[in-house]
Every structure is written in structure tokens, then in C-alpha cells.
Computed example of a mutant assay.
Amino acid sequence: MALKVGDKITNFTAKDTHGNDFDSQNFVGQKALVIYFYPKDNTPGCTAQACSFRDQYEDFKDLGAEVIGISSDSENSHEKFASKYKLPFILLSDQDKKIRNLFGVPSGMFGLLPGRVTYVADKSGKIVMIFDSMMATKHIPKALEAIKKLV
């Protein structure tokens, strides 16, 4: 059952780039969130998307939002990806695809690739925008626009 606009983000846990435990309860209900699911570290589209979020990260922070990227890559892969591109935001490893399934992220490209979907949630954890597109760099302005409407 896919999450829809108006739904609350349910609690989930994962490992971050440093192998630390991440608990969504420490973020959901505390601040606005931009949670984006992407197919794979170090691929052209995913790198462009991550670098665009990096370049606008301060704009999200200034508006009181946190950015979280999620893919099925390992913590080690995320650590190298974040280090190589100086990514300041949280990357979570979802190797068992539990979080992807919890959100109901569809597969892209005829089911061949994990989907690329961005969710924006308000401070209470309610989803206010979902953007599903394989056009990697289109996610950042959409997410920023949604966050600005919350402020």
C-alpha cells in the first residue's frame, strides 16, 4: 500500500553512511523532511540528483528542512559516494528494500530499475508532496517549492 499525500510517514530504521543506526522518530514530527529514493550510487542521474540536493542543501536547511537520500546501496558504497561528492545530508542504506516497500516506491523503466521518488513531509510528518520521475534533477526545485509553501 503506497503512501499518498496526506498520509503520515510511518517509523523506520536504517543504517547511515557511517554505519550508525538511524531512527525516523528522531526526525519525523521534529522538522520538515525531503526523503528521496534513488536507484544507485555513482550513476550519472543519481550523481546529478545528489549534487543538486548538495548545492541547494543550505536553502533546505534555512527553511528548517532535512534532506535524506535512500537507496539499496551498502553503507560502504554510500560512505564513498558521500565523500567523493561532499554530500552534507543523510544517506540511508535500504539493502532489504524495507523502507522502499514501506513507502510503496514503484520501480521505474518497466520494473528494471528501482524508482526515483521524492516525498516532502511537513513538520508533523504528513506527506504534502510526492514527485515520481526518472528525471533526476527535476526533483530538487519541486521539493524546494513544496518546502517553501510550508514556511
Rank of each mutant, 00 (worst) to 15 (best):
H78E: 09
D16T: 08
Q25F: 03
G64V: 10
E58V: 08
D59C: 07
S107W: 03
V34Y: 07
S74I: 04
Q56Y: 09
C46T: 01
K15I: 09
M109V: 12
K80N: 06
I35Q: 04
C51D: 09
I99T: 05
I99G: 01
Y85S: 01
D41G: 11
K61C: 11
T43I: 00
D23F: 08
L33Y: 12
R116K: 06
N101T: 14
E75D: 05
Y38R: 04
Y38D: 12
L113D: 01
F103D: 02
D41S: 08
F60T: 12
R100W: 14
K97P: 00
L87R: 04
L102R: 07
E79Q: 14
D73H: 02
F81P: 07
G29F: 04
K84F: 03
S93Y: 06
F89L: 08
L112A: 11
P106R: 14
K126V: 07
K98S: 10
L92E: 10
G69C: 12
G104D: 01
D96M: 03
V105F: 06
L33F: 11
G111R: 15
G69Q: 14
I99L: 06
K97E: 11
N26W: 01
D59V: 07
D59Y: 07
F60I: 10
N20H: 05
Q49P: 08
V67H: 10
D21Y: 03
I68E: 02
E79C: 11
I90Y: 01
Q56A: 04
